[in-house]
Amino acid sequence: MVQISVDDWDLFQSLNQDPEVISLCFDEPSPEAIKESFESRLPVWSNSSEHWLCLTMTLTETGEKIGVTGFRIVDGSAEVGYLILPQYHGRGFGTESLKALIAWASKEQGITSFGAVVTEGNIGSEKVLTKSGFSLTKVVPEAYEIGGKLYADHVYSYENIVS
């Protein structure tokens, strides 16, 4: 995994427009909002940054980029997120990348508190989180609207005790 670069625009745009990827994450953003989101992730990241650390997931065998993963620091905790191209859903790449991200963030950045918010019904993302050691800590009813429908937010957390 490496930090996103200007060369990753097509991947980022596709991930933010594909109905299969975003259906239980958010409404399709405008082209301008996607571009703004992409550009906000391009500056070099450090643990004092306010923007997302956005890393591309790459298949070792082929070099093909299949998604993004990363986090941003909010009140001392890393809020994690990930988007993966549909043809790679259910193949363990989300879990593998999230576990690697947590290990790196804990060891290299001293981050031990992680969180994630998943929209009700996004079973795939919930499986990734639980396989990565996260626990469901709160359900917030009717917290998020997608396509005119209100969904509950499922709030997950993970504390990595580094010894």
Rank of each mutant, 00 (worst) to 15 (best):
V44A: 03
Q109T: 00
A105E: 08
Q17K: 09
P31H: 03
E39G: 08
E120A: 11
L101E: 00
S30V: 09
S106M: 06
S157R: 15
A143R: 07
E50I: 07
Q13S: 07
G121N: 04
P31C: 08
A78K: 00
G115M: 09
G110C: 03
G121V: 04
M1G: 10
D153Q: 11
Q87C: 05
G115E: 08
F12A: 03
D27K: 05
V68Q: 00
A100T: 07
V140C: 12
N47Q: 05
M1E: 04
E108I: 00
S97N: 08
W9C: 14
D18F: 13
G110T: 04
E126W: 10
P31D: 09
V140L: 11
T112R: 13
I66D: 02
F12M: 04
I34V: 11
S113D: 13
F71E: 00
D75A: 14
K35T: 02
N47R: 06
N47L: 03
A105D: 04
L83N: 04
Q3G: 09
P86F: 15
Y158L: 13
G76S: 13
V118K: 03
R41V: 06
D153W: 14
I4H: 01
V6T: 12
T95S: 05
I123D: 12
W52D: 04
E20Y: 11
Y156F: 15
A152T: 03
N160K: 10
R41P: 03
Y156L: 09
I102W: 15
